[in-house]
């Protein structure tokens, strides 16, 4: 059983009459990479600032690894590692001194071996004794990861972590996340880059206008009745079309030619179609499933929300 490393309940932020964040609740377990999605200005950063204690909450509670932010601020903060927005460092100091600076601020004793280990992990060993002002953005991001994981926190928060990173940097970052999550850390990432998030996150929440409008849907969830685009490569396209029209009248045929036929079908329906094809002496060489991208899902959700609100 994985335990909850972050529990946010009824998080609310009001500035004057405007409600920036409205009654948001979610939970992140260890080993989980959780994406906070939403368009710019939806309130993602405000939520993250409230969780990290950088701004006051109007209402709601934040528990980090079982410590309440209000009652045990220091305990909660020691379980947190984060890069809030851009990874900013003391540019006039070396990377090593920056790391030492944050190591000293932990409640845990951080050994020199641990510092070396983290520097190696983020592949900065060649540049760690250079001043941070000579670092590229990618290197600063890696230094950011180093200072965040130094004290082995149970929760990591990265706000728009891939901003300004090149594709290689993004890929490296993704790999770190997977490794960290496999070691038992819970990770919260905010982003407006949906395709990025799809590759990184196990589950996600969609924020719009300060409200949580969708949560905890696993991006790859085999049990749900999600309709996928399924394409069958068969020995005869015409026969396949005939079988579908006769036996599966409710299934939409997206396209077909002599060798392939594409339909919209659920997981269950895909199995049934396959059985029918075989029973009708049709050879099935390949079944391909094009899963709905997070982007499609995101627009589906936000558009639905918009229709409802009209």
């Amino acid at each position: 059983m994985s335990e909850s490393v972050l529990k946010v309940q009824s998080l609310t932020k009001k500035i004057g009459k405007a409600t920036i964040v409205d009654n948001v609740s979610f939970e992140i377990k260890s080993n989980e990479i959780f994406g906070l999605l939403g368009p710019n200005g939806a309130g993602k950063t405000t939520i993250i600032r409230m969780i990290t204690g950088l701004i006051n909450r109007t209402g709601g509670t934040v528990m980090i690894n079982g410590s309440d932010l209000d009652h045990d601020f220091e305990g909660a903060m020691n379980e947190l590692g984060a890069i809030v927005e851009n990874p900013e460092f003391y540019k006039y100091m070396t990377g090593r001194k920056n790391i030492l600076h944050y190591a000293r601020m932990s409640s845990n004793d951080i050994s020199n071996e641990r510092i070396e280990e983290v520097i190696k992990l983020v592949k900065l060993d060649h540049a760690i004794d250079k001043k941070v002002k000579t670092y590229s953005l990618g290197m600063r991001q890696r230094l950011g990861v180093a200072q965040a994981i130094l004290h082995k926190p149970s929760l990591l928060i990265f706000d728009e972590p891939t901003n300004g990173l090149d594709p290689q940097g993004i890929r490296e970052f993704r790999d770190y996340l997977k490794v960290l999550a496999s070691e038992g850390v819970g990770i919260l990432i905010s982003s407006h880059l949906l395709s990025e998030m799809q590759l990184m996150c196990d589950s996600f929440a969609v924020i719009e206008k300060g409200k949580l409008i969708h949560t905890k849907e696993h991006i790859v969830d085999e049990k749900t009745e999600t309709i996928n685009e399924v394409s069958f490569t068969v020995s005869g396209g015409k026969l396949a079309k005939k079988i579908l029209q006769e036996q599966f009248a409710d299934i939409t045929i997206l396209k077909y030619d002599s060798k392939t036929i594409s339909v919209s079908a659920t997981r269950e329906q895909t199995a049934n179609i396959n059985r029918s094809f075989i029973e009708n002496q049709l050879d099935v060489y390949e079944i391909g499933i094009t899963r709905k991208s997070l982007e499609d899902k995101f627009f589906e959700i936000t558009e639905q929300e918009m229709r409802e609100s009209v």
């Binding site: 990290t52 305990g75 903060m77 809030v84 851009n86 460092f89 003391y90 540019k91 601020m105």
Partner: peptide, 14 residues
Amino acid sequence: SDGTIKQLLIRPYK
């Protein structure tokens, strides 16, 4: 002005 204040405040110190 360097933006480091945020990194400084998310530490286990009042």
